[in-house]
Design a protein around this nucleic acid. Structure first.
Length: 200
DNA sequence: CGCTTTTGACCGGCGC
DNA sequence: GCGCCGGTCAAAAGCG
């Protein structure tokens, strides 16, 4: 696990993102590394809202969706995450709507990056908590969780068999605490991404 | 020593 | 109900 990502992903050094207007169109670094997938007419950013076969109010179209994220975060902070974060997850998955809460699933934001390393350093500290083999994929998928106390942001990283040079990183949730490394604020980028995805 | 990674077990949802 | 599948747990190993 070397981290020579700097050459591929100049974001983490001070050079690239100092201005951070990050308009996806005007940010050169990203547009270079994003790969357009015409599979679903989609280029780089994917939003998943886990709504299996019910009416998929993806929430991306409404613009109200940002509120959902915030409420998720605030509710997640009540739980201690070291031992028993699973209750919260089960709540979110929503077996029974016990009176007040309806089933709200955290939206996930995925993007693809051309990189030789799997771990893209976004300035947060992550602890790996699982790795699974994916069917029809020869590379495993790794599951990470933010190590900040009370922060339940997760991400998973997966390399595509199709194109070995592409790494798909999926973020779930948003950080509600400052970044711990001296990287430029990737949180800005994440929030910008969310704005973009929710407005589509 | 305290942290992270590893890795099989486990668990809930879903399709059959 | 059973088995698959995606996701998580947790004990042990690894590493600075």
């Amino acid at each position: 696990m070397e981290n020579n990502f700097t050459s591929f992903f100049p974001l983490s050094s001070s050079a690239a993102a100092t201005t951070t207007s990050l308009n996806m169109g005007s940010y050169h670094g990203f547009t270079d590394y994003f790969q357009a997938k015409e599979e679903n007419g989609f280029s780089g950013l994917i939003q998943e809202t886990e709504d299996h076969h019910h009416h998929a109010v993806v929430g991306g179209l409404n613009g109200n969706n940002t509120n959902n994220n915030n409420s998720n975060l605030s509710s997640s902070q009540n739980k201690s995450f070291t031992n028993g974060s699973e209750n919260e997850e089960k709540l979110l998955l929503g077996t029974k709507k016990k009176g007040s809460e309806k089933k709200i699933r955290k939206p996930r934001y995925a993007f693809q990056t051309r990189s030789q390393v799997d771990i893209l350093d976004d300035g947060y500290r992550w602890r790996k908590y699982g790795q699974k083999a994916v069917k029809n994929n020869k590379f495993p998928r790794s599951y990470y969780r933010c190590t900040h106390q009370g922060c339940n942001v997760k991400k998973q990283v997966q390399r595509l068999t199709r194109d070995e040079g592409i790494v798909v990183t999926t973020y779930e949730g948003m950080h509600s605490h400052p970044i711990e490394k001296s990287t430029d604020n990737f949180e800005h980028i994440l929030s910008q991404m969310q704005i973009y995805t929710t407005s589509f």
